[in-house]
Lab assay of single mutants.
Amino acid sequence: TKVFYNGTYVEFNNPEKAKKYAEKVAKKVGGTFTEKNGQFHVE
């Protein structure tokens, strides 16, 4: 499961961990995250 952010991504074996990371990054940058095709995108 990949989490895309700012033109790069971090890959996780565990979708649950990926979601938590996406939430954390989104919170940090004051943005939101969306799930597309089983991957997370932070905006």
Rank of each mutant, 00 (worst) to 15 (best):
T8R: 11
H41E: 07
P15V: 13
F40M: 06
A18I: 00
K36H: 11
K24N: 12
V10L: 10
Y21M: 06
H41Q: 08
F40R: 00
E43Y: 14
E35V: 09
E11M: 09
V29Q: 07
T34R: 10
T8D: 09
G7T: 05
K36N: 08
A18T: 01
G7N: 09
V10A: 07
Y21W: 12
E16D: 12
T32L: 08
K28E: 14
N14C: 13
K2P: 04
K19Y: 09
V42T: 02
T1D: 02
T32M: 10
H41C: 14
T1I: 13
E16K: 10
V42S: 00
Y21S: 03
F12D: 01
G7R: 02
F4L: 05
G38R: 03
G7Y: 05
Y9M: 10
G38M: 04
T1H: 13
A22T: 02
V10C: 15
P15Y: 15
F4R: 03
F40V: 04
V42W: 04
E35P: 03
T1L: 07
F33M: 13
G38W: 01
V42Q: 01
V25H: 06
K27W: 06
F12W: 02
T8V: 11
G7Q: 05
E11W: 11
T8E: 10
V29F: 10
F33W: 14
H41R: 06
Y9L: 07
G30F: 05
A22M: 03
K24C: 15
Q39V: 12
E43T: 13
K20D: 14
V10R: 10
K27P: 01
T34C: 15
E23G: 05
N37Y: 07
F33G: 02
H41T: 09
A22N: 00
V42N: 00
V29Y: 09
V42E: 00
K24F: 13
T1K: 06
T8G: 12
G38Q: 05
T32W: 13
K20G: 08
E35W: 07
K17L: 15
E16Q: 11
T32R: 11
T32D: 06
A22E: 03
E23L: 06
F33Q: 04
K19T: 03
V29S: 08
V29A: 07
Y5C: 15
V25K: 07
Y9V: 13
A26D: 00
T8P: 00
V3R: 00
V10S: 06
Q39I: 11
K28G: 09
G7F: 05
E35H: 05
A18F: 00
H41D: 05
N37K: 07
Y9K: 03
E11Q: 10
T34Y: 15
N13D: 15
A22C: 01
V29L: 12
T34P: 02
K24M: 15
K36M: 12
E43V: 14
K17R: 11
Q39F: 08
G38E: 04
K36S: 10
A22D: 02
F40L: 08
F4K: 03
E16P: 02
T1C: 14
K20V: 10
N37V: 03
F4P: 01
Y5L: 08
Q39N: 15
F40A: 01
F33H: 04
K19H: 07
E23Y: 05
G30T: 04
T8S: 12
Q39R: 04
K36V: 14
K20P: 00
F12T: 01
A22L: 03
A26N: 01
G38C: 10
G7A: 05
Y21L: 05
A22G: 03
E11V: 12
F4G: 02
F33N: 04
F40N: 02
E16S: 10
N13V: 11
F12S: 01
G31C: 08
K28A: 15
Q39G: 10
N37F: 08
F12A: 01
V3K: 01
N13Q: 13
H41N: 08
K27A: 12
N13G: 11
F33E: 02
V3H: 01
K28Q: 13
G38N: 07
N37T: 05
K19D: 03
Q39H: 15
A26M: 03
F4A: 03
F12I: 03
V10G: 02
V42Y: 03
V3M: 02
P15L: 12
T34L: 11
K19S: 05
T8L: 11
Y5R: 00
A22V: 03
A26T: 04
A26P: 01
N13R: 11
G31S: 07
Y21D: 04
K19I: 07
Y9I: 11
K17F: 12
N37H: 08
P15R: 15
G7L: 03
E35S: 04
E23D: 08
G31H: 06
E23C: 14
G7D: 08
K36F: 10
N6A: 09
E35G: 00
N37C: 15
Q39P: 00
N14M: 06
H41Y: 15
K28F: 10
Y9P: 03
K19W: 06
N14W: 04
E43G: 09
E23Q: 11
A18G: 04
E23M: 09
E23S: 07
A18H: 01
N13M: 12
V25L: 15
G30W: 02
T32A: 08
G38P: 00
E43I: 15
T32E: 07
H41G: 02
K19L: 11
G31A: 08
E16C: 14
Y5P: 02
G38A: 05
K2W: 06
T8A: 12
N14Q: 07
V25I: 14
G31V: 05
K20A: 14
A26K: 00
Q39C: 13
N14P: 01
N14G: 07
V42P: 00
A26C: 12
K2Y: 08
F40E: 02
K2M: 07
N6M: 11
N14F: 05
K27Y: 05
T34K: 10
V42R: 00
V42H: 02
K20R: 13
F40Y: 13
N14Y: 05
T1Q: 05
Y21N: 04
G7S: 06
K20W: 10
N13E: 15
T1F: 14
K28W: 11
P15D: 06
K19G: 05
